[in-house]
């Protein structure tokens, strides 16, 4: 019995030591990088908000940001997130209270370079400016947005998530 226990401990203790050391190393690096990662993520949001409503000030609620400028309400901004072809596409959307899109800005995506990545370019995103929520669909789905040739899936993903989230946010604000 004693021999057996010794054998088991002889195997287990080094493994436990390795795990504890690795846990300590990871916690240390997490502490080192935590602030930096948060700042990076926060900066992405702030940057995209100021692209959607330049010069406005924002108050955050649970789901969206309301933008005001000079005491006057401008509209809402929110993140729409959905699966694209090969990545999660995160889009910042600006919405007027009357249900038209102000503009959209792709915060992060990693679609196929050269094809799906074109959804982040102004040629594609500017199509959303001033469109009514219900029209935000691809042309082949009965809407007004032209899909990028060779990247229909990415185009449809971003269009549909923007519309769906916009509908939810608009309902909440009423």
């Amino acid at each position: 019995m004693g021999e057996e226990l010794k054998r088991i401990l002889g195997i287990a203790i080094p493994l436990i030591i390795v795990c504890v050391l690795s846990g300590a190393a990871l916690t240390a690096s997490y502490d080192l990088t935590e602030e930096r990662i948060e700042a990076v993520e926060q900066e992405k949001i702030t940057e995209s908000l100021s692209i959607i409503f330049p010069g406005a000030s924002f108050t955050a609620t649970d789901d969206y940001y309301s933008a005001t400028m000079g005491g006057e309400e401008m509209g809402y901004a929110f993140i729409a997130e959905g699966r694209g072809y090969s990545s999660t596409i995160k889009t910042m959307v600006g919405l007027y209270p009357n249900g038209t899109i102000r503009r959209i800005y792709v915060v992060s995506q990693s679609e196929t370079p050269g094809l799906g990545t074109s959804i982040a370019e102004p040629d594609f995103t500017s199509q959303f400016n001033g469109k009514r929520i219900e029209d935000v669909r691809l042309r082949q789905d009965g809407g007004v947005i032209d899909a990028i040739t060779g990247a229909t899936i990415s185009s449809r993903a971003i269009t549909d998530t923007v519309r769906e989230r916009a509908e939810v946010v608009l309902n909440e604000t009423r």
């Binding site: 795990c19 690795s22 990871l26 690096s29």
Partner: peptide
């Protein structure tokens, strides 16, 4: 595996931040 995974996580954390 634990050693390798720890270093991978360290790379992940620093790459996310920087």
């Amino acid at each position: 595996i634990v050693v390798i995974a720890s270093f991978v996580t360290i790379v992940e954390l620093f790459m996310h931040g920087y």
